[in-house]
Amino acid sequence: MPCVSAEKLCFSYGGKSVVEDITFTVNTGETWAVVGRNGAGKSTLIKCLCGLLSPVRGNVSIDGIDITKMPPKESAKRIAYVPQGTNRTMPPFTVREYVGMALFPYNTGFMGRLSDDNKKCVDDALALTDACHLADRSMNTLSGGEFQTALIAGAVAQSTPFLLLDEPTTHLDPFHKENIRQVIERVHKERGTAVVTVTHDVNFALSTHKNILAVINGKVFFNGTKDEFCVNAVDNLEKIFSIKFRGIDGGKNVCFYETAE
């Protein structure tokens, strides 16, 4: 079964260790939330997973092949990455142009010309992410929620079995947060795409993902299913974020909020 796995992964920025000895596997069709505090190493971890950063020690492999040794176009056919939507200095590409650019690993046309198949792929991605109405808008005129949707549409057009998202709902209002949540769920259900989401929004993490990887100071604190996590959810969350939490509904669909007590 195809999988992305990190083996004893270590990474450091200028001597400061950020990811320490993380071993973790994502199988086809799974959904994972990577939770932890700011600076815990979540983003660094998924940058290593998609080959943006080369680990200092350990390795990341897709289907058993070391990702840093894979030709870029080959890894791009397997893993798509949506960076944090905070950097919105995007040139005035139309959304359709931006999504079309994602077909780079498949595209062999002169000067990036898209074939009819490519164009259909773009339309499908726009439809699946509910972004058809944005298609002819310019990327630099989109609102925060629309921008995030466009970024995800691009990653969906890349047609990969694995999708990595870095903080997709940070900075979004509840309405757009729910939108993004539905988009992610739809991509997972209809395409069978495995999703790994980095987030510090615990309700989003627990409502949308079947598995949880919790990271504290670059080390794995919890690695397992959401149900296992929820057995002791309040406790776990308090350890991860070092503040008090309270669950509203004792059952499975819990809503946690931070409390001062």
Partner: peptide, 22 residues
């Protein structure tokens, strides 16, 4: 002309460019 699509990708940021196979 042969690298013109890569140029498009650079504008979206090198992270996206690289994960898209550039």
């Amino acid at each position: 002309a042969a690298n013109v699509t890569a140029l498009d990708h650079f504008l979206t940021g090198e992270d996206i460019a690289q994960t898209r196979g550039v």
